[in-house]
Write a protein that binds this DNA or RNA. Structure first.
Lengths: 200, 200
DNA sequence: TCTGTTATTGACATTTTTGTCAGTAGTACT
DNA sequence: AGTACTACTGACAAAAATGTCAATAACAGA
């Protein structure tokens, strides 16, 4: 028994750090390989910890999924809250705002998150989304000069298109032999032109 | 041993019928509960057959997934091929065509299929999609009067929006407190208005 | 330096999911 | 009827995924 034991050096983090580390790893997996890759072993491996560590901090793999959804939604809300698409401002400002919105919903796997939520059955998770939507809608709608009804419609339209384009745009563009950002360009162009026409 | 054996009456189908029966059941599961519900036991139960029967016809659950994707893509291609959105015809005809396109991509879980493909890693499956796109694009683009480049862009735009709206439209509309078809209405309205403007 | 706390882990147990196989039972054909 | 073919099935085996537990090891505070 003279074989020297290769004690694996342990990294000890605070619970918050550890949770964040695991969730970040899981987020990468989600974005790069899809929801079906969020298995316990895979998440643990990506985070560089043992399976049991993941369970120690979250209790179950399902809880990891929920926490990841919540974290990504929170990030997304924050990103969207930072965007301003003034309906009554000059076209130039609107264009910038919309572009930022599309960026926010395409990058960071936000579209992936949305698709995951959409395809996932469990309605319990919808409450989180609902809360986020409330938060965004409330702030966004109040600070425009247009009537509430129309503001809601415009937001619904913009967000739906942004998420849809964020998820499918790159693939479809590539499939038809165009640069991946083509669908987004076309959509933004149309959306801006439409808004301009409305305000005329 | 006087217990009367309750022989389960067997249904014997042709291989084609059996495969179709299983795939239909799987499709329902996909549309109603998402890809994660496409487990062997669930598919078999939904189809009303034993697990082993599914494997007898497909070999593995993965093969069922592939076959389902291929069948749904084929159906989708057929549906799209039947649509005609003449770029040079009166606005009325265009509106009808686009509406049909949106219907085709929202119903039957086409949007669910697209999201599933998008979230699924395996690139091998992309070849099927690529072939389908080639088929549709080739026919669709040649029979319009507009330049190829622009026709491609318009198709890319329409299809991207249709799939995006088909997947996210109903949920987002509902979340913001509107009827589920609202996002689609808004998108169609904008798209038509934009096309009209282009041709002017 | 000692001690309490707890994040971490490997080994193991449990559950879930997939796949195998030999036998059963419809159906067509003789 | 009898027979060949094979769709079909239950029972079982294998694999994969999740979860449990007791022991270990960082680290803070005494």
């Amino acid at each position: 028994m003279s074989i020297t034991e290769t004690n694996t050096p342990r990294i000890r983090r605070t619970p918050e750090e550890s949770r964040a580390n695991i969730l970040s790893a899981a987020e990468s997996l989600l974005v790069e390989h899809g929801p079906q890759s969020l298995r316990l072993a895979d998440v643990a491996k990506a985070a560089g910890v043992a399976n049991a560590t993941v369970l120690h901090h979250f209790g179950s793999i399902g809880a990891v999924h929920t926490a990841l959804m919540e974290r990504m939604i929170a990030d997304l809300v924050e990103a969207i809250m930072a965007v301003d698409v003034p309906a009554d401002a000059p076209a130039e400002a609107r264009a910038v705002g919309l572009k930022t919105l599309f960026d926010a919903l395409e990058s960071r796997g936000a579209a992936r998150l949305a698709a995951w939520l959409e395809l996932t059955d469990e309605t319990s998770r919808l409450t989180v989304v609902r809360a986020a939507v409330q938060e965004v809608a409330q702030k966004k709608i109040s600070n425009t000069g247009v009537p509430t009804e129309m503001a809601e419609d415009l937001i619904l339209l913009s967000v739906t298109l942004a998420i849809g384009v964020g998820l499918f745009g790159p693939s479809l563009s590539t499939l038809i032999g165009k640069p991946p950002e083509r669908a987004r360009e076309l959509t933004l162009q149309m959306l801006l032109s439409y808004l301009q026409q409305l305000s005329a």
